[in-house]
Simulated assay, not measured.
Amino acid sequence: MSHELQKPVVGFTCGDLNGIGIELIIKSLADGRITEFCVPVIFASNKSINFYRKVVPDINFSYQAVKDFSRLNPKQINVFNCWEEEVQITPGQLNDIGGKYALLSLQQGVQALKEGNIQALVTAPIHKKNIQSEAFNYSGHTPYLKAVFEVSDVVMLMVAENMRVALLTEHVPVSEIAQYVTKANILSKLKILHASLQKDFGVDKPKIAVLGLNPHAGDEGLIGNEEETIIKPAVKEAKQQNMLVFGPYSADAFFARGHYEKFDAVLAMYHDQGLIPFKSLAIGEGVNYTAGLPAIRTSPDHGTAFDIAGKGKADHNSFIEATYKAIDIAHMRLGYAEMRRNPLRKMSNMIVANAQDEVIKEDAE
């Protein structure tokens, strides 16, 4: 197999057409070195790319248009035209056009992912309101991908250099969180997280911390009983299934005292419990990874940023980190599959992330 064919084909959805998605893609892929590591495919249209190329005129961005995956140029950026019609782009405005074409791009990208035409997908931010339709009745990318790939469960996993935070519940109203805190749900998330840490991040024996739902992790039942009746039994059963799972921990002290540094991942009970400390303490740029899918999907850890859309001000660091994380995981999965076929063979294609995770694991022990 040639070197060119070994590079993963990575797809990019444009997100809300009036948001910062295409600007992020252009800025991230403009560095010619990106084609040394992957074959980029943007799911949008030539006209939409050209519109935002004018927003960042100081960047030299070239591409080739394709309609057939067999004609991808491995040394160039490829634009897969998802629509041909003229579309009125109005940066910063929340309207039906932005949502309609965000969904069209997403549908084409996911189809390519399912059919194996691309090995990973990086999704630009959508607006959860204007993308709603008969074809998209979900609270975000994660539940949509779960449904499309027909898997029983997935995990929203936030990844940074120094921490990984998974969520038991995602975009759920605070008043409804407790009803999702069940032993079955916790065990499901832990199994997916454990498997992903091994297969996608190269952690041989992952250590996972579980946070409590209530203040002070319930204070032995004085402030709620979910820890005693649900979370502790789930942790116990996970240990019986040969997973290194610990907790529940009081969320405030756990992050304030740096205990997260001793674990390979943390399972938080709800969105803000995990995302606030992640965005406050993460070193480097955060990436959102959907664990539990048969395919690879990453995204930046921010939204559409309508307030700066079309102004050339968007910071692309999280997006480019999401791109490289997708490439890393693609290589990691290849190495993991090879290891399972032949555990005695040295996995020469394992990337530096594997060694870094081993250091984290040894420090935790």
Rank of each mutant, 00 (worst) to 15 (best):
L104T: 15
G109W: 02
I118L: 03
C14F: 07
G98V: 01
F80K: 02
K100T: 13
Y52C: 04
L24I: 09
S48T: 13
V39Y: 04
S105Y: 04
I34H: 08
Q64F: 15
Q132S: 13
Q132Y: 11
L94R: 07
C38Q: 00
G21S: 09
K67S: 15
P91S: 11
L29Q: 01
R71Y: 15
V66M: 11
D96W: 01
A102C: 11
F51L: 05
D58V: 12
Q64Y: 15
A102G: 08
A112N: 03
N73K: 10
A124T: 09
K75A: 13
P74V: 08
L113M: 08
L17D: 01
V122C: 05
A44G: 12
E23L: 06
K75H: 13
F51K: 04
V55H: 12
A135Y: 13
L104S: 08
S105V: 02
F80H: 00
E36D: 15
Y101T: 05
Q64M: 12
A120D: 08
N117Q: 14
E23D: 09
S70P: 03
I118W: 02
Q76G: 14
K114F: 10
D96T: 14
F12H: 05
N60A: 15
N81G: 09
L104C: 12
E115L: 02
G92L: 06
G21Y: 01
V56W: 07
V10F: 11
D96G: 13
T123V: 05
I26H: 05
F61Q: 06
I89H: 00
Q119E: 14
N95H: 07
I97L: 11
F136M: 03
I22E: 04
V110S: 04
